[in-house]
Design a protein around this nucleic acid. Sequence first.
DNA 1: ATGATATTGAGACTTAATTGCAATGAAAAA
DNA 2: TTTTTCATTGCAATTAAGTCTCAATATCAT
Lengths: 154, 154
Amino acid sequence: MKKNEEIQLINADQKFEEFLKLKELKYTSERKLILKAIFSFDKHFNVEELFEKLREQGNHISRATIYRAIPLLLQSGLITEALHCQDKTSYENVFNREHHDHLVCTNCGKIIEFYNEKIEKLQEEVCRQHNFVPIEHRLGIKGYCEDCYKKLKK
Amino acid sequence: MKKNEEIQLINADQKFEEFLKLKELKYTSERKLILKAIFSFDKHFNVEELFEKLREQGNHISRATIYRAIPLLLQSGLITEALHCQDKTSYENVFNREHHDHLVCTNCGKIIEFYNEKIEKLQEEVCRQHNFVPIEHRLGIKGYCEDCYKKLKK
DNA sequence: ATGATATTGAGACTTAATTGCAATGAAAAA
DNA sequence: TTTTTCATTGCAATTAAGTCTCAATATCAT
């Protein structure tokens, strides 16, 4: 684990602990290990991958426990549900990362992240117009990445 | 069925037929009935609702057939997968309807549609910057609608 | 250290979605 | 119109994600 990842994990750990305390829930060793495993992914993961990763790390934690931890991690804001790419629900570690939106290539699956300040502002404006209080948003644009488009044109 | 709905159905019918012909597939009576049933929904539906609707209309069409028709309808552009609101996958009839994005209340499930020209343009710009060719996009903002926010504040 | 209670693991269960297969039906070819 | 081909259908079996139950266990406030 890289140095800065380690620091992030410690901070995430704290945040999760505070969240759990607030809800009068317990910060069990299983939950600690799950959080740690999440940080060993580059970014995206699904439940099955998380289960496998934990086993690799020598910790057998039941799927049920993982499924039960997910809503807590979502609520605490440490992860979010990722763009519904294929079949399985997948999640994204978003702790201490900037918000961003996605361009998803429907051909090769490549994901390009982007952030556009103006779009963000306009969204806030739309919410105000409808007296809507936003929590989070997700913008996904499906299409063809440069390489795939070239291939397909041939 | 209202007059304009009828006309839309006829056009959708044509579009679906063309699509199937192009793929050397058959436009069966079952597929016709499924399309008709979709048009009798205000807009959103899921497979179970579609199955029920068909039964109400006196047509017993098996779930398998419906499940097999869905990808074709998606590919033909007559429907799209709707914002993943709760558990079941739901779809949206988008034939001849203006594109729009969604505000989704996480408390009561209410969906507010909106369209913002500037956001659309900015998205196109982002795509150009990344040499990305968009097919479709989806923007969903989760949060609290006016009523629910008032209730929660109390 | 103790006790109240949240949490865990295992496996049964639920439910959405897919698949195999024999019978059927659409539509191109004759 | 009839024949022929092969996509399509319905049913039931199957898969797979996710949830639930319950006895045993672990956490944490006191």
